[in-house]
């Protein structure tokens, strides 16, 4: 049995698109659940999504627990050994309060990759495989979130390119979620049910494409 950690924000947590903050899709609807349905007989799929999680920043409004960097180490230690870590973050870094360019958001993802590589959290003390997933661009209309995400429409469209640069520089796997899903028009930045399903399928294919040798046990 292999294990994959899905480390992300509200779109990994399964936050619904309707503007009801506590609402979460059922476990088999959100993408890690879809993934579990597809590869669950061979993989332990671990969900670690938190609404509002950033790549590397404390959030002065939402709290320091949203910092994706400080939680990453204890999180990995709780779940190791891991074969694969999927990181899908960056959407919350688009918030105007963080004042980050797309390149800097990508560098935050790069910092997480460096942190993972500094820990022997893989099987047999190796480093796990790492898959960076660029989140899909926001919708053009961000409704009541327009102020919070001022300028995010344009910046989010540059993320995939910047993430690929980071993936290249760190020699890790990369997937652009924008190729298969869009942010919902309902609130502008969350995924709807169909998007979770499509993303789960796409991630399953990406995992398979990495190629995994037969396990001996």
């Amino acid at each position: 049995m292999r294990s994959v950690l899905c480390y992300g924000d509200s779109n990994t947590y399964g936050q619904t698109t309707a503007n009801k903050p506590d609402d979460r899709y059922p476990h088999d609807v959100r993408w890690p659940g879809v993934l579990r349905g597809l590869i669950g007989n061979e993989w332990l799929v671990i969900e670690e999504g938190l609404s509002g999680r950033t790549t590397v920043s404390d959030d002065e409004i939402e709290g320091s627990e949203k910092n994706g960097r400080t939680y990453l180490r204890p999180c990995i230690m709780s779940h190791k050994p891991l074969d694969l870590i999927i990181i899908m973050l960056g959407t919350n870094d688009l918030k105007v309060r963080f004042n980050k360019t797309p390149g800097e958001i990508a560098m935050g993802v790069g910092a997480l990759v460096s942190d993972i590589k500094s820990m022997p959290a893989g099987v047999d003390g190796k480093i796990p495989e790492i898959l960076i997933v660029a989140p899909p661009p926001t919708a053009l209309d961000l409704k009541e979130w327009s102020d919070v995400f001022l300028g995010a429409q344009e910046k989010s469209r540059a993320l995939a390119r910047e993430y690929e640069r980071i993936a290249e520089a760190h020699e890790v796997h990369f997937f652009n979620a924008g190729l298969v899903v869009n942010s919902s028009d309902e609130d502008g930045f969350h995924l709807d049910v169909q998007a979770h399903k499509d993303l789960g399928h796409a991630i399953a294919e990406e995992i398979a494409a990495i190629g995994w040798p037969e396990q001996n046990d």
């Binding site: 290249e168 990495i210 190629g211 040798p213």
Partner: peptide, 17 residues
């Protein structure tokens, strides 16, 4: 990619890149 890795001796992530 698995076969490419096995034949070349390169890591999965290098093959991916």
């Amino acid at each position: 990619r698995l076969q490419l890795g096995q034949e070349s001796g390169l890591s999965a992530q290098t093959i991916s890149v």
